[in-house]
Amino acid sequence: MQRRTFLQSFAVAGALAALPMSIRSGFAATAGAISVKDLPALEGDLTLYLGRGEGGLYEKVLDAIRQRNPKLNLQIRRGATAALANTIVAESQAGVRRADLFWAVDTGSIGMITDAGLARPLPKDFNEQLKPGFRYPRWSPVTGRIRTLPYNTERLTADKVPDDIMALADSDLSIGWAPAYASFQSFLTAMRILEGEKATLSWIKGVSKHAKSYAGELGVVMAVERGEVDLGFANHYYTLRLKAGKPDAKVDLAYTKSDAGCLVNASGILALSDGDLPFNFMRYLLSAEVQAYLSSEAYEIPLVKGVKSPTGLPELSTLTPPDLDLRKLADLRPTLNLMREAGVL
């Protein structure tokens, strides 16, 4: 199985040649992330389909882009990400296109659009600002989230937490999980793709013997902190946010190595119409300012080179997420079947 190791890459020379002069200068100055000061002004009409995301922070970003670009007429349609993806496909089948852009909180919905052949190919230079492993021809990741093992620091030490996700099935640790939660199901889908159905079914059955279920993954993290369970499965930002509000919280993060336990999933954006405007809008989301804002305020992982990870999280280059085309996470049905077979749904 191929694994991906995140190494710092400095191969930007080729990208620089393909960029407009104004963008080139910003790119060079920040070694990856481009400042909005170096981006072209946005002018014209754009319709964005926005999947439900991180509270009001995405809205703040969009408002800021609007304010900076008074000649941009940005219309936004909001809804559940999967529902919007279905709408885009249905509109296409009906011969209409209302959206110029689709910003999705999960890559499964992105896969649905790219598989339908509706996403426009990105300009050649576009991907170079993204971190290696997050470059795709027809869509751009915006920010990431990593699967983690939050553990109770009074009951465990980091060295007692297995760095192999599959080993947890046979451990004697008490575990908190949220089987109905979309992020957990994406994580299991990654495991199914990487390890196979048999191993995943066995893992689910094994963990379920010593797991306690919660409605959501913040609930998992809080249960870990209270000491109800030794550790849990959750996206990274719940623990960071809990620790921001409660610095003495008895919880810390551990990471597995090169398996689904440290999957990095991403929100993403793609263009559905031709022309520079949709892509230039996307460049704003990848700008140094927006990436830093989403890192510091939403604890999301910047996927553009040169922007720091949120406080409390190791740099992505030190972690070893699995090598996986994130669009494959859209194939959820076999995962749900396994979960039902194991009796956890």
Binding site: E54, G55, G216, L218, Y237, R241, G245, A249, A298
Partner: peptide, 17 residues
Amino acid sequence: YMERFEGIEGALIEQDA
């Protein structure tokens, strides 16, 4: 809970866990 509260509890926990 899933469609509304879950979207704000991350921001809220920073204020009052």
